[in-house]
Amino acid sequence: MKLNHYALLFSSLLTVTLTGNAQSNAQQEGVKVGEMSIMRKLAPTGALEGQAATQYAQTMRAAEQKNALGQANHPQVIRLRAIADKLIPHALKWNERAKQWKWEVNLIGSKQVNAYCMPGGKIAFYSGILDTLKLTDDEVAMVMGHEIAHALREHGAERAGKAVAANIGVKLVELWAGAKGYDPNLAGGLAGGAAKFGMLAFSREDETEADIVGLDIAARAGYDPRAGVALWQKMGIVSKGAPPQWLSTHPAGKTRIAEIQRHFPEVMPLYARAKGVSISALPPYQTNVKGIAPVVYSAK
C-alpha cells in the first residue's frame, strides 16, 4: 500500500507539471513563456513571502549594525530606487500578487558580486556588483529585471515543490529496491544523484526564464535590452574559472548571450516604443568598458 501510495502521488505530480508547463500565456506582444509551474503549489507562496520578509528585514538590520546599509540619500540607493520605480509598473502583469507586495530596494556595502529579489518584492543589491562590473543604468535594469522576474515567476516556491517531488521519487526507488531484494540505500543514492542533476537543469531553466522576462520588463521601462549582452560579457571577464554549464545552476555566459539575442525581435520594438523612436533610429548600445564592442540590432 505504501509503495502504491507514493507511486500514485508521484505520477500525479508529474502529470500536472507537464500539463501546466505546456500551456502558454496570452500575451500579444513581448516575450512568450509558459504558465508558471504547478509545482509551486506544493510550497505555499504566502508562507514563503512571509519568511522572505522576515529574512530580508534581518539581513538589513545586520547590514545596518555593520554600517553597511546604504542610506536613503546615498547616490547609489537613489539610483537603484529610481530604476526600480520604472521597472515595477511593467512587472505587475506577470503576477497578480505583485500588486499587493510591499516592494523594497536596498543597497548593502559588500564586495559580493550579487543582487537578488526575494518573494514579495524584497530587492537587494551589493555594492560589489555595481563597482566590479561598472554597471550602467541599462545594465542595472537587466540585473534588477532578472531578479524581479524570479520573484514574479515564483521560482523559489517552484524549486521547493520540485525538491518535494524529487524526494518522493527517491523514496519510491528505495521502496522498489527493497521489495526486489536490492540494497535500498545504494538505489536511493543513485536516484538522489540523478535527481540532483535534474534539479540543476531546472535551475538553469529558471535562470533563462528570468533573463527573458527581465528583458521584457526592462524594455517596456525604456532600458536597452542589448545591455544584457554587454552585462554578460562583463560577467565573463570577472567569472573565469566558473564550473561547466552542466554542473552549474546558471547557464554559461555564452548561452545566456545567445538566448538574449534570440529574443531581440520581441523586446527591441518595446524599447523603441518606450523611447519614442523607430528601431532603425536607435544607436548601437555602447557600454563603459574598453574591449567590449558596441551591440547592434537590425530589424529584418
Rank of each mutant, 00 (worst) to 15 (best):
L3V: 13
N4E: 14
A7I: 09
L8F: 10
L13Q: 05
L18K: 09
L18D: 15
T19N: 04
G20F: 07
A22N: 10
A22F: 08
N25C: 07
V31Q: 03
K32H: 15
V33S: 09
V33W: 11
M36V: 15
I38V: 11
M39A: 13
R40L: 06
L42V: 03
L42N: 03
A43I: 00
P44C: 05
G46A: 13
L48P: 06
E49I: 14
E49G: 04
E49C: 12
A52D: 11
A53K: 14
T54N: 14
K66P: 10
G70T: 07
P75V: 12
Q76R: 15
V77S: 14
I83D: 08
L87Y: 01
L87E: 05
L87T: 04
A91L: 04
K93I: 09
W94Q: 01
E96W: 00
R97A: 15
Q100V: 02
W101K: 12
W103D: 09
W103E: 07
W103R: 08
W103I: 05
L107T: 01
V113D: 01
P119F: 00
G121T: 03
G121A: 03
K122W: 00
F125A: 07
T132D: 08
D137G: 06
D137P: 09
D138H: 08
E139V: 02
E139N: 09
G145Y: 03
A149K: 02
H150Q: 07
H155P: 04
G156R: 08
R159T: 06
A160C: 02
K162A: 05
A163L: 09
V164D: 00
G169Y: 04
K171W: 00
L172Y: 06
G181A: 10
G181M: 05
Y182I: 06
Y182T: 07
P184Y: 01
N185S: 10
N185D: 12
L186M: 09
L186A: 15
A191T: 01
G192F: 02
G193I: 08
G193R: 12
A194C: 09
A194V: 12
K196N: 14
K196H: 15
M199G: 11
L200I: 03
E205C: 10
E207Y: 05
T208W: 05
D216Q: 04
D216G: 05
I217W: 02
A218F: 05
I237N: 08
I237H: 06
S239A: 12
P244Q: 10
P244D: 04
Q245E: 15
G253Y: 12
T255I: 08
I257L: 07
A258K: 14
H263L: 12
H263C: 10
R273F: 00
A274S: 14
S280C: 03
A281D: 13
A281L: 06
P283M: 02
P283Q: 11
P283Y: 06
P284E: 03
P284D: 09
N288D: 12
I292G: 04
V295M: 03
V296T: 15
V296K: 13
V296N: 13
